[in-house]
Amino acid sequence: MLAEKYPERVAKIFSKYPDKRSGVMALLYLAQEEYGWISDEALSEVAALCEIDPTQVKSIAGFYTMYSEKPKGKYWLQVCTDLPCALRGADEFYKGLCDYLGVKDGGTTEDGLFTVEQVMCLAACDHAPMMQCNFHYHENFDLEKAKTLVDRLRAESAQKQPSSEK
């Protein structure tokens, strides 16, 4: 439970707003960070904290693409395939990444570590192609760099090291 596990962070979120319902988005991020995705239980938990109906929380989680309502891997790889990135080879890069991980578009690896996904412009066109891993930007990217990143994260995960990608 978020309120028990992170009482200070929850209190800090609420302290920023005049009423509790305004804390919903920040709490959804917290829930996603904690559980990896926004499950129905997480919705209810956030709703109870904000004292609103879970339906309203679901509406917000559904509207914003940065909340995931499906279970996903520990690392969420979002590859921009919008026009500028596509012109710099993002499509091949994305396909190569999928093949390297052995998953289809939008899929999650069997070990539950990686989820890949195409997304719309992430506002880094000057460093295209790019992707983000759990909201961290990796710019001027190519397949080799991506493979290195994936391998590193796999290794870290296997050794149960603290992740370098929060």
Partner: peptide, 21 residues
């Protein structure tokens, strides 16, 4: 004043949902 119905997703995927109990 019963906020039990809301839009979910957007654009053409938009759907009316309720998850109240």
């Amino acid at each position: 004043g019963d906020d039990v119905l809301a839009f979910h997703e957007r654009g053409r995927k938009l759907q009316i949902v309720t998850v109240s109990d």
